[in-house]
């Protein structure tokens, strides 16, 4: 296991979580470096999403903890995790269905803006300027994920692939240091997956570190700098894709199956 990697962004130390008798995570320790695409794979029920939820503050771990960007992450505070710079998408897309695509991304700016009720009521210059900046940033992000022509449509009426993109745009609106994608390619066809691959690669090139949970082994191995494999809640291996692919335990647990 890599202990002292240079330039770590997120360090998980012996994270444990159990639901009743089920040990969903058994002392998982891993390190994500700045600027990399880090893959997290494993069979269904291996604990990938549980790990995700612990990290983003939706679950409180039963043991261990996270260090993010040089300071510990406080458990059970998703809004604070987002403020610190962790953004996420969900395995089963969670958009604000009755709001337009543009509004969805504009909500994403919430954590980086500060206008209050009084500002909204009196529409002072600072509030107006901030509102204009929010709108512009949201339009830019819709453009970035290439769904700008759907800006005025309700999120629920977007196609599946566009919804995935919108969720990524909303996450990017929070100016994340670490973008966590939970099975973004699930349910996508080959063309859509290819486009998603380009999008993720582009986001990384623009300076955001990415944690990718994915079932599509080809996508993960082609895209990620390093990959961690979870099985029965325990970390099997954490290494570059070439090594992971040849590891006997991984082949038994996952790839060969």
């Amino acid at each position: 296991m890599n202990v002292n990697l240079p330039n770590p962004l997120l360090e998980a130390k012996a994270v444990a979580k159990h639901f009743g008798g089920v040990k969903a995570l058994r002392d998982v320790s891993l390190t994500i470096r700045r600027g990399e695409i880090y893959g997290l794979i494993g069979p269904n029920g291996a604990g990938k999403t549980t790990f995700f939820n612990c990290m983003t503050g939706l679950y409180v771990p039963d043991g261990g903890g996270f260090t993010f960007d040089g300071a510990p992450l406080i458990a059970d505070a998703p809004d604070k995790a987002a403020a610190r710079g962790i953004a996420r998408t969900f395995q089963n897309i969670r958009l604000f269905g009755n709001m337009t695509a543009l509004e969805n991304v504009m909500v994403g700016r919430h954590v980086r803006t500060k206008a209050g009720v009084l500002g909204a009521m009196f529409q002072n210059a600072a509030t107006k300027a901030e509102e204009a900046a929010i709108r512009q940033k949201a339009i830019d992000l819709l453009h970035y994920v290439r769904i700008e022509e759907r800006a005025g449509d309700l999120a629920r009426n977007l196609s599946y692939g566009d919804q995935r993109r919108l969720e990524i745009a909303r996450a990017l609106a929070t100016d994340p240091k670490l973008l966590c994608l939970d099975e973004p390619a699930a349910g996508m066809n080959a063309t859509e997956t290819e486009q998603l691959r380009d999008l993720i690669d582009g986001i990384r090139r623009d300076g955001t570190t990415i944690l990718l949970i994915e079932h599509d082994v080809k996508l993960v191995m082609g895209l990620c700098d390093r990959v961690a494999v979870l099985d029965y809640g325990a970390l099997v291996i954490e290494d570059v894709p070439a090594v992971v692919q040849k590891d006997q335990r991984v082949i038994e647990a996952y790839l060969g199956a």
Binding site: P78, A82, A173
Partner: peptide, 14 residues
């Protein structure tokens, strides 16, 4: 409105 639509997603974006 975000809270109305999906509270967990609203929390997750801060």
């Amino acid at each position: 409105q975000a809270i109305r639509e999906d509270e967990i997603a609203a929390k997750a974006i801060g």
